[in-house]
Simulated scan of single mutants.
Amino acid sequence: MTNNLTSCDSKLEFERDGVELARGLLPLVDVETIRDTFMQQVESDRLALAADDKLAQNDILSQYPRFMQPHRRRDLSAGLVARKTMVDARITQIVTRLIGAAHGAQSMFYFKPPTARGQAMHQDNYFLRSNPETCLAAWIAIDDCDGGNGALSVVPGSHRMEVVCPEESDASESFTRGLVRPPEGMTAVQTEMNAGDVLFFHGSLVHGSLPNTSLDRFRRSLIFHYVPTASKEISRWYLPMTDLSTGNDVFIGEAGGGGPCGESWEGGAH
């Protein structure tokens, strides 16, 4: 797999690499609606959806915090947009092709403005603890993104490794504490995506991002996690899940451990 991931529609390729890129899946008019709605939310009330990250007040991410589970907030425009996108057939058709019938387990929105730190390499299912099947991410680029503004890097094939306990990350580069190193012989691939592209990847795939070193480019993204309907348990942080057909709440067993996607460093740690 080259530095520019290529689109594919083969389940065999997904099973080999653990990642699939869908170019131009969402039209720009839809992306602009998502971007504008979430920008209005962060500018009017950034705390309504903010994760409980312990960040210093002078950290730019305290002004543009990551939003967790916005789809649960039907009283907010951002919540309605997130929920509508979570169940969008253009996305869920690919989810179903890759992992079968699924429930929506999580939504997140990352703003990642200039100077923001990235998120060290990690595996999503360390946090979700979906069992016996793993989760699947759908990572929607809201801005054109590359290495300069902190786009994702992924390690193709790393989804075949076990979910492992993280080491400690570099606080100057990552706003979260955990770090998972790629398996020996595997290297990270820097993605380059346009607004409206969607990256689907396996919950055990090692992935992360470096800081946004651009002068004036955000790297906004709307992210969903899905789990197969055959899943028997998941970390309590992700309950209730969402039935993609009806929008109803779905409860399954609670898995031990897990938590929000990445524990942040204490304020001032970097």
Rank of each mutant, 00 (worst) to 15 (best):
M1P: 09
N4I: 00
T6L: 00
G18A: 11
E20R: 12
D36V: 01
F38W: 05
M39A: 04
V42K: 13
R46I: 08
L47G: 10
L49N: 15
A51V: 11
A56S: 15
D59V: 11
I60D: 15
I60A: 10
L61N: 15
Q69H: 15
D75M: 08
D75P: 04
L80H: 04
R83N: 15
V87C: 14
R90I: 01
I91G: 14
T92P: 05
T92F: 15
I94C: 01
I99M: 09
G100A: 06
H103Y: 13
S107P: 02
Y110W: 11
M121F: 13
Q123D: 09
F127I: 03
R129W: 07
N131E: 12
P132R: 06
E133Q: 07
T134W: 06
D143N: 15
C145E: 12
D146P: 02
G148K: 09
L152F: 08
L152W: 00
L152N: 05
G157A: 10
M161K: 10
M161R: 13
E162W: 00
V163L: 14
V163S: 09
C165G: 11
C165E: 13
E167G: 05
E168F: 08
S169Q: 10
D170F: 00
A171Y: 14
A171L: 03
S172N: 12
E173G: 05
F175C: 02
P182F: 07
P183H: 12
P183R: 04
A195P: 00
G196P: 02
D197E: 10
F200G: 01
F201E: 09
G208T: 04
R220I: 00
F224C: 01
H225V: 07
H225E: 01
H225M: 03
Y226M: 00
P228C: 04
K232V: 03
K232I: 03
K232Y: 02
R236K: 07
Y238F: 15
Y238I: 13
L239P: 07
L239S: 10
P240Y: 07
P240F: 06
N248D: 11
D249M: 05
D249R: 13
I252V: 13
E254Y: 12
A255N: 11
A255M: 08
G256V: 10
G257N: 13
G258A: 13
G259I: 08
C261L: 14
W265L: 03
G267R: 09
G268D: 05
H270Q: 06
